[in-house]
Design a protein around this nucleic acid. Structure first.
Lengths: 349, 349
DNA sequence: CTGTTAGCGCATTCAG
DNA sequence: CTGAATGCGCTAACAG
């Protein structure tokens, strides 16, 4: 019977390679080579080994193997918000690519908390993942970068790109699509804008905001100062700001949310005020929702190629394992803008 | 320079316990004991070790440690649909509880594919996770159960409960809330029902369907045979069925979807037919969507305590590690029914 | 074509 | 209070 607190998963019963070798009348190395197909083994010897494996229902111990080869065939991924659809898709992408390479995924959720992020990095590094994919938390600590830079584990920063950091990185184009979006709205007749940018310590968001500012500045048609809701972190605080902007006599006619959560908050404010889209206000968002077709009217959405981001991240790790290059690469994937009814031509009252 | 295909994460530079011991002028065992606080060490000896650790920025190798102790301080979780909100919340719950216990999470997504599920189980078992949490795929293979039964790794089946299987299990109450929901709709004046149950190989769905059948049968007010859309797997097929039912002269006045994806399909059919809720048809769903407040009208939803399911799963593993009981426990958590506008009182035309 | 051997980095007896 | 020695299960030289 197991003693209290014992968590051994049956180390007592588990058959090892030695047992198999004994049963097959061969050496452990032959068994190993049969299992891994790593050198030629005579057909009947091979069969004896296979039989012995079958008979003992032997399973490799990935731990011992990893230790010996000093590689774990696993990659770690740390996300700041596992729940959001964009991140969920990234996980899918990573998982897809990883599975194809026979790699296991270790998932950690920093929940946008710097301390949890640090501890996740430490844990995964201790587990000697072969590569690490990280979407840094907004308030990510310098210690994390230090740890990652010193170490020899290949790292890919995903989604949130930092130009001054020497890592492989992959994220979406943010400034340009925002520009296109604003121009689209201007073409539709809008002159007064609001952008909900949220926590601009997140590069994704600050880039989108920057794109917004540039687009507004570049457009001589737009005279009105836009409403910019940025650096607010608490959703309730953001909600208040949006509501306030809706009460303004110079109420913006077009609202742009820079992310899923921000979009939800903005729409909540619309609902609270009984405003409808696009009759009362135009609306567009980055990232968007799951099941977008269920929203009526359909929402114009700048959609991140999140799945591809995930796949690309693994690709970058692979390149580094293969020693293809010693330089660090930053990959920017284009976004797709889905123009829908929520930004349809605005008719001035 | 790394050779091609080399994936060693710097095993060359990594400091080991030996190096620390040398630097501190003590034995490796003392270092080990200092790190793990596993026996008393003289204050200054201890300090010397701590300094050496600091100086070398030594980090434990979780692999070697795990091998030696034959436990990995990790748990695996295999889900059939990582993307759905209910499963996402379960992951959160598991992650929350796991983190609190200092456990790492290995995540695998079977994507409702039996082969992927099997291979995920094999992989996680080989990695010697201390416990495994599994939401079985619809077409899960017997081999999976065999593997899990034979092995000594504690297993918890989550969400999808199988009464004839000897594992710890945790899921939600399904029959009773469906009953309550149907009664609620009957009270609101409905007599003709449709239920979208999807793939009833999934116990969650078959239980909900069973609850539905019982509720209908128990109600003498309901004479009309309900429309039951079950055993369809392909969403497009389901969509067709729903559309067809909407065209019927005896069109149901109340639709109940048994899960998020099914709900999306049903709503899509409503939109396609230009029907509005609850004016034209009442609607309610199990599991529901993220950001439910954004749906207008608000949808009556039977909400699974998904986060708690995840936490409970870890709890069950813990009990097993502690050898609290040798019997297998099935925990059923109650669901919460959120009655909203989509099922409001029906007025007969 | 196959066997022998030496560790991977650590926790843990067993002696002092 | 501390150190020396052993082996977890496996792969990879090396040697036949």
């Amino acid at each position: 019977m197991n003693a209290r607190g014992n968590r051994k998963a049956g180390s007592d019963t588990m058959t090892t390679i030695v047992e198999v070798a004994r049963l097959a009348g061969v050496s452990t190395s032959t068994v190993s080579h049969v299992i891994n197909g790593t050198r030629h083994v005579e057909a009947d010897t091979r069969q004896r080994v296979l039989d012995a494996i079958e008979k003992t229902s032997y399973r490799q111990d990935a731990l011992a193997r990893a230790m010996r080869r000093s590689r774990t065939d696993s990659i770690g991924i740390i996300l700041s918000a596992v729940g959001e659809p964009a991140f969920t898709d990234m996980v899918h992408g990573v998982e897809h690519a990883a599975t194809a390479l026979g790699l296991t995924l270790l998932l950690a959720n920093s929940a946008e908390d710097a301390a949890r992020e640090l501890s996740a990095v430490e844990t995964l590094l201790e587990r000697r993942v072969d590569g690490l994919i990280l979407a840094r938390a907004a308030a990510s600590m310098p210690r994390v970068i230090e740890l990652l830079s010193r170490g020899r584990t290949p790292v890919v920063l995903i989604d949130r790109i930092f130009d001054d950091l020497a890592f492989d990185q992959v994220g979406a184009e943010n400034r340009e699509p925002m520009r296109a979006l604003v121009n689209h709205l201007i073409d539709a007749g809008h002159r007064r804008f609001a952008v909900i940018a949220g926590d601009t310590r997140v590069p994704t968001l600050s880039e989108r905001l920057e794109g917004f500012r540039n687009a507004i500045r570049a457009n001589i048609l737009v005279n009105d100062e836009p409403v910019i809701i940025a650096d607010a972190v608490d959703p309730r605080e953001i909600l208040t700001c949006v509501l306030q902007s809706l009460d303004s006599p110079h109420r913006p006619t077009a609202y742009i949310a820079c992310g899923t959560v921000l979009a939800a908050t903005t729409l909540e404010a619309f609902i609270k005020k009984g405003l409808s889209t696009p009759a009362d206000v135009a609306f567009a968002t980055f990232d968007g929702f799951s099941y977008p077709d269920l929203f009526v009217p359909h929402i114009t959405t700048v959609r991140q190629p999140a799945f591809d981001l995930g796949m690309t991240a693994v690709e970058l790790l692979k390149h580094r394992w293969n020693g293809v290059s010693h330089l660090h690469h930053t990959v920017r994937l284009p976004q797709k803008i889905e123009y829908r009814e929520s930004t349809e031509a605005f008719v001035f009252g």
